[in-house]
Nucleic acid binder design. Structure first.
Ligand code: SF4
Ligand code: SF4
Lengths: 147, 147
DNA sequence: TTTATTTAGGATATAAAAGGTCTTAATTAT
DNA sequence: ATAATTAAGACCTTTTATATCCTAAATAAA
């Protein structure tokens, strides 16, 4: 249906939550689940995917939990989303040459390539650190409005 | 999974096929199915969706079939895809304001808005007529290469 | 008017993906 | 040793994707 899955969305929320924690703090899934409105067990599963794809690091045992695997300024939105969903391809023929037998003579293929490149450019062009920053600015703005 | 469905893909092929037919020719689903490698019954269903959304026109009975509902130069790729799939939204929060309760303070929302706008700009920026033209040019190029 | 051909519309079927829960094992600070 | 926590994966339910099939309606032509 050409839409981000809930798992992908939750992964982004989790990464952003971790980026907003003080340097070095280890965070439980329970905290991520509560603060970010993510079903608890589902959150655990998504965190596992992010560990496997190298975006976050896990710490087991008492006082265990999760931290980002590297500085938030080195993690892009694309890293997080593809870490959860796997690589994104807007159409089959973008997966690899020959995946669609018509790709060498198909005019639509070129459009999909363009759309794919642009989407990747946008998602890879913003880091989790930048998002966290913008988020704080937005919070401040909205709380002013409410007063 | 953030990917065009087969139905959407087949719809585009069908529209392009119709655009390549001589002015006024009525085309059977059987022809579309065979020439565009689309399962026959599935093609029929996709064509129905395109009729309902006003992209193609149907003609019933003997000598019946399908034609484009308006000149190919007035039909964009977006018209065809959304005609089959319904409106595209890259994330839930783009459907409408308030669909996600966090949208007024969420930094990621802005990125999705940007990605959505760009995608729509690309898909709505090319017409079926232009695609058909490019397709003919590509065919010519490839047949030269083979010689 | 009858017939053959074609789409319309919807029922049905199957498989895959999405979304979510649960259990058990492994790890580790205390 | 124990309690807290993630790891791993089994399991479940719902929705979407993909596809097929059947009957009705339309209509050009015989
Ligand atoms: S857009 Fe063209 S190349 Fe891509 S899947 Fe469709 S037919 Fe194949
Ligand atoms: S990106 Fe932000 S606004 Fe959009 S669904 Fe996620 S949390 Fe909500």
């Amino acid at each position: 249906m050409m839409r981000l899955t809930r798992a992908g969305e939750y992964g982004v929320r989790a990464a952003l939550h971790l980026a907003n924690q003080p340097e070095g703090k280890i965070t439980f899934v329970s905290e991520i689940s509560e603060k970010q409105d993510v079903p608890r067990h589902f959150a655990a599963k998504v965190m596992q995917l992010l560990v496997r794809s190298g975006v976050v690091r896990s710490h087991r045992g008492v006082k265990g939990g999760f931290t980002l695997a590297r500085p938030a300024s080195k993690i892009t939105l694309k890293d997080v989303i593809e870490g959860v969903e796997g690589q994104i391809f807007l159409n089959l023929c973008l997966i690899k040459k020959g995946e669609c037998p018509r790709d060498d003579t198909c005019p639509v293929h070129l459009i999909w390539r363009e759309a794919q490149d642009k989407l990747m450019e946008i998602l890879d062009g913003v880091t989790v650190a930048e998002l966290a920053e913008t988020g704080r600015a937005l919070e401040k703005k909205m709380s002013k409005k409410k007063r």
